[in-house]
Design a protein around this nucleic acid. Sequence first.
DNA 1: AGCGGAACGG
DNA 2: CCGTTCCGCT
Length: 372
Amino acid sequence: MAGTGTGECEGGESQPGSTMDCSCVSDLLFAPPALPALWTPGFAFPDWAYKPESSPGSRQIQLWHFILELLQKEEYQGVIAWQGDYGEFVIKDPDEVARLWGIRKCKPHMNYDKLSRALRYYYNKRILHKTKGKRFTYKFNFSKVVLVNYPLLDVAAAATGSPLLLTPGPFGGTPGPDAPPITPETLQTLFSAPRLGEPGARTPLFTPETDKLRLDSPFPFLGSGATGYSKPPGLLGPYGRAFPEYPWNFNPYLTGPFPKLPPSLYPPHFYPNPLASSLGHLPSAGAGGGPATAPLLVTTGEGPGTERPSGLAMAPRLALPGTGGPEATLGGKDSDSELEITDVSGCSSDSEGDEGSPAPPKAKAGKGGTGS
DNA sequence: AGCGGAACGG
DNA sequence: CCGTTCCGCT
């Protein structure tokens, strides 16, 4: 039916008496209707990053998705861009970012103060954290991001046709103590047994018991303190420019928007499984010093059945933020004034559901009155 | 500028 | 659950 998903903020505007109406007319970012699961729109995210539904816990667009979107597009380099270490980005124009976010959410009165509050909520969820000392600079904890979105499961399920249940929140939520993470076999099938040399260790990441994972301050890699991660092996593609330092090259969304990559960089075909590559060299790759705390979900068992010969044959063109600063290409203001975008719809309709409750870090003191 | 509690709403 | 709005504190 409606091919184009149009969604405007119709209905009752949430905002009281604002003269401005939300022109949430689509603009869009991406996500054309008939695209394959994985493709590359210039630079692409795996797919899960695009869809609002990709978040287990929430349907609507999430702020961090939005941020990622912006980061992904060159047009916005003037307002927000990767900068600094892996996953670090700086909001160069807070007001603009807030404005764009407001458009997307049909909240005309959005501003950086509010947006940043939302960003702060991510701290506890470990999706983001603040880079102290640097104004408007935050850092993504991609490991969390990718996990929380469990693109794998989705893919795995589809690929194998197994109705595995998703358990989005290995760490925080997943109230179901007995809820099995996922069947390793399934994943393995998908990832074609990377055989990292995993000892048979299960997956600490997914153990409900241990949950909470050890991402404290010093993340496996985000730790700014020791940025001396060894570079990944030769996974880098033909791009001479390597990335600064990734602990393991896992990149949240394949490919990197980073500095301006010439169009010729992207290959005609797209990648198989982002995660596959990612998983291929997870933390275990920590060359020597790596904390490698999370082997992720490598199975211990053997994967009988489907075996794919080569899973990582292709070179993951990761990219992503890095210190990309030095690139001479920066500065190119080739883009003309562009547009305004951003908003695709989604300003209405929503359904909800609920599941899991991943982030209750602190107990709240009874404030509601009922308390003791 | 940044943080986080609280109330509220979809 | 995920913000949004508001606000007091550093």
